[in-house]
């Protein structure tokens, strides 16, 4: 199961290696990792996308909480959340194919951020599933290069009633 964890940390030197070292040392998966400052000075937010069985995820969350520099950990599983990642993808698109690539870009509301004679670079944002869908649709044109951010996520203000 894929889980997205949001990890609020004290922004001290070495905090990234503490988190990364925890994952590598204990054999946990990191699918993506995103770190950026928050509104509060000295505090950063890491968004980690990981996968594993429930017991492993439970350990990951507990082990993260145990790190002295970690302030808070939220597992978005079971929480209504907005989840986004951004991707830039350079696709082969000569004259014959360009229109079709642009149509797909349009459907997924991608922006064209760079063009040359033979390729197009698209910027796409969306949740993990959408990004994967774009990639698989563009694959047949020939993808030259991609650059992706990790997932970031935020809890929705309105949570569905829980039974």
């Amino acid at each position: 199961m894929r889980h997205v964890l949001s990890v609020l940390v004290e922004n001290e030197p070495g905090v990234l290696s503490r988190v990364a070292g925890l994952f590598s040392g204990r054999g946990f998966n990191i699918e993506s990792l995103n770190v950026a400052p928050t509104l509060e000075e000295g505090v950063s937010l890491m968004t980690i996308s990981t996968s594993g069985e429930e017991q492993i995820i439970e350990q990951i969350v507990k082990q993260l909480r145990k790190l002295v520099t970690v302030i808070k950990v939220v597992d978005f599983e079971g929480i209504a959340a907005v989840e986004r990642e951004m991707m830039m993808v350079k696709v082969q698109a000569d004259d014959a194919r360009r229109a079709e690539v642009l149509r797909i870009a349009d459907i997924f509301r991608c922006k064209v951020v760079d063009v040359s004679l033979n390729d197009l670079t698209l910027e796409a944002t969306g949740d993990h599933g959408k990004i994967q869908a774009i990639l698989s649709l563009l694959a047949r044109f020939g993808i030259k290069e991609i650059a992706r951010t990790g997932t970031v996520a935020m809890r929705r203000s309105m949570q569905p009633e829980t039974a």
Binding site: P13, G14, R18, G21, G25, V68, T69
Partner: peptide
Amino acid sequence: IVGITRPCTKHNYL
């Protein structure tokens, strides 16, 4: 040494 002992200390400081 902070890097070396990160996984075998409860916490460490430079």
